[in-house]
Structure formats: structure tokens, C-alpha cells
Design a protein around this nucleic acid. Structure first.
Length: 357
DNA sequence: GGGCCTGTGCGCTTGTAATG
DNA sequence: CATTACAAGCGCACAGGCCC
């Protein structure tokens, strides 16, 4: 999955990325660009928020007397605003009252987080934090952990939140499913979410889970293969969620079950320090040979005529390039090469016939 | 002879479908 | 439920092509 992060980071800003067509909802690019794209990702909340904003604006205008409204109208608007807020629209909540539930936080690369924070330093929060009331007081954060972190870091007191009405279980599921749709969630994080979901729904088969999420059963199986890794390996992944994708994890898990768990742990450690990539890690765990990267180097040589180069030969795999000083020389050599090649070809044909008989 | 730009194949990934 | 085969997207490295 690490490559995906890299790719995603590099592809950011490029419009045509079919794998991750959705704009990052946690980062408000610029207020002016917000409406269309960003609202698409959270249509209901955004819609509500926009209605509220309209109400607030009109109320403000009336109160300062700019629009010359009657006191009746002000009262009516105030009530409308209060009603709207009651029914799950955005309200301001003190950051002190927001609490994190383990396992719900999405991974975000440090650079991205810094970008988000700087954005929030200068721009208004576009998407409210989504929270759930706690019985013991305060609120659980459902979505918006990084925004909350950033605002805390910026020394803000409160934040615009949307309070949703749901059970914790529904909330977990909601957060999980919403997260799983995020293409930049690492496979390991998907596994953690899946695992939790599976534990609370022990009766569900992989195919059923897959159906609910909208992915294939085999992908569910792949993701859950992290479960078959040695504990020590998972501990490394816990701290480096993006380094081993589900495909490699599945292979490593199989190897582990074949009695190579020590090598699997070692391989994952090597990946975590950047010494191996995923594919190399699998090879490492498989046969233990130091992975030799078979990079087909282009071979070259030059043929000199006195001090100057008469021709320059390069070969990469099955392609040769021969460069001469003039077209005339190239033409004459071409004939010679042709004769040589024809000789080689007939010899090769002879060998083939010998082998066949 | 070497530098620079461009096009493309490679190696990696995610994800689905078929099969065991 | 696991495994295997395959399709497709992506960036990067490097071959290919051109120019000075």
C-alpha cells in the first residue's frame, strides 16, 4: 500500500486519476473552490450547513439593521435557526469536550496533516466535525480526527460540529464503511476495521461482509490475511500501517503457516526500515536467499578507429543499437551484419532440428 | 561525445472473477 | 473461505531520438 500513498501524493492535483477520483474531504482547498466538489462527498451535512449559513447571514443582516427587517422576522429566523441546529445541523462545541475512540482514526501522512493544519490556520473549516453524544458527557469524534488535532494545535477553543443520532455500534460501522470507501486508507487499516466489524458480527460470512461494503469476497479474504501473520509481524505493521499491502500480507501469512514465521517477521522488519520492498520481502521469507535485484543492465561497447569512435553499440535485453558516424558506413555495415545474421540464423535452425530429433 | 527530452516497458499495486 | 489468474492503473527508469 505504500506505493499507493506515494502515488496518491504524487497524483494529487492531477485531475484524471481513476483510482481516487474523490477530492480529499478533510482538506478544504480554498473556500472559493469548496461548494461543488467538496459537498459531493458529504452531501447531507453540507446541504444542511449551507441552509444554516443562509439563515445566519440573513439574521445577521437583519440584526445590524442593514436589511431593515421587522422584529417578527428576526424572531422567526432565530427559531428556524435553533430548529435547524437541533435536527443535527452544525453547532459549535468546545474542543475539550471532544473525545477520540480508538480504531476510528484514519491514517494521514505527516505532510498531508501539515497541509491540513496550515489550511485551517488561514481558512475556515468547511466540513464540520461529526460527533456522537456520550452518556458520560462530551462527544465522541466520528469523523474529523485530524481536523480536531489541527485546531487544537492552532490553539482554537471550539469547533463547528454536527451531532448525529446513532448508537455507538452504528457509529462505528458508519465510520468504518465511510472510511473503507476512502481509497487512501491502507490495507492494514481496512483489516483493522474489518476485524472489529467481524468480531461484533461473528455470524456474518466473508461474502456477506463484502456485500455490505461493496467489495469482493476475495478482497475481504485478502485483507483478513493479516490476521494469520505472527503477532510480532502485526506489531510492526501496527506502527507502520502502510508498508505491506494485502496481497503481500496474504503471501507472507501463508509462508508463516508453512513454518517460516521467523523469516516473515524478519522480512516485515526489513520492509519497515526500507531495506526491502514488499515483493522482496516475500522472496526473502520464501527462500531466504538474499534478494538479488535482477536489473538487466544495458551493455555497451565502442569500437575505435584510431582515436575516434567508429561505432557505438548498446544492448538492452533483446534490442541492440549500433550507431555509426555516417549513414554510408551504416549502410555498408548493414550488409555485413545481414550476412552474419543469416549465417547465425541457419545455424540456430540446425540446432533446433537436432534437438527435435 | 554527451546532454536533454520523450515515449514506453517494467514492476508494483489494487481489485475482480474463477476455481479449488 | 482460500487461492490463483488476470486486468488495469500508476510512476519511474531507461531506451530511443534528437540536437549541439
Amino acid at each position: 500500500m505504500s506505493i499507493k500513498d506515494r502515488l496518491a501524493a504524487k497524483a494529487a492535483g492531477i485531475g484524471s486519476n481513476p483510482r481516487s477520483p474523490r477530492p480529499e474531504p478533510e482538506i478544504p482547498s480554498r473556500p472559493k473552490t469548496a461548494p461543488g466538489q467538496l459537498m459531493a462527498s458529504l452531501p447531507l451535512l453540507a446541504e444542511k450547513e449551507r441552509e444554516l449559513e443562509v439563515l445566519r447571514t440573513r439574521l445577521e443582516e437583519l440584526e445590524v439593521g442593514a436589511a431593515g427587517g421587522s422584529s417578527d422576522e428576526i424572531a422567526r429566523l432565530k427559531k428556524e435557526l435553533a430548529d435547524a441546529q437541533q435536527s443535527g445541523a452544525a453547532i459549535d462545541i468546545r474542543l475539550l469536550d471532544l473525545h477520540e475512540v480508538p480504531g476510528r482514526r484514519r491514517h494521514m501522512p505527516p505532510e498531508k496533516y501539515a497541509e491540513l493544519r496550515e489550511n485551517l490556520r488561514h481558512n475556515k473549516l468547511i466540513h464540520p466535525i461529526v460527533v456522537l453524544p456520550r452518556s458520560e458527557g462530551g462527544f465522541e469524534i466520528l469523523s474529523g480526527h485530524h481536523r480536531t488535532d489541527a485546531l487544537r494545535e492552532l490553539g482554537r477553543e471550539s469547533v463547528r460540529c454536527v451531532v448525529v443520532d446513532a448508537t455507538t455500534e452504528e457509529a462505528d460501522e458508519g465510520a468504518f464503511f465511510a472510511n473503507l470507501m476512502q481509497s487512501d486508507l491502507t490495507d492494514y487499516e481496512k483489516y483493522v476495521g474489518l476485524k472489529r466489524f467481524q468480531q461484533t458480527h461473528a455470524n456474518l460470512k466473508q461474502a456477506e461482509i463484502a456485500g455490505r461494503i461493496g467489495i469482493s469476497q476475495s478482497y475481504v479474504s485478502l485483507l483478513l490475511s493479516y490476521d494469520r501473520l505472527p503477532n510480532a509481524a502485526r506489531a510492526v505493521l501496527e506502527a507502520n500501517v502502510g508498508i505491506v499491502g494485502a496481497t503481500a500480507a496474504a503471501e507472507l501469512a501463508s509462508l508463516s503457516e508453512l513454518g517460516k514465521s521467523e523469516r516473515v517477521v524478519e522480512a516485515i522488519l526489513q520492509v519497515s526500515v526500507g531495506k526491502l520492498d514488499q515483493a522482496q520481502a516475500v522472496r526473502f521469507a520464501k527462500d531466504g536467499d538474499r534478494t538479488k535485484v535482477t536489473k538487466p543492465l544495458a551493455t555497451t561497447f565502442k569500437v575505435k578507429a584510431g582515436k575516434t569512435t567508429w561505432c557505438d553499440v548498446r544492448r538492452a535485453k533483446n534490442v541492440m543499437r549500433i550507431e555509426f558516424q555516417s549513414e554510408e558506413v551504416a549502410q555498408s555495415v548493414q550488409d555485413a551484419i545481414k550476412r552474419t545474421l543469416e549465417g547465425l540464423a541457419s545455424a540456430a535452425r540446425g540446432e533446433l532440428r537436432d534437438e527435435e530429433s
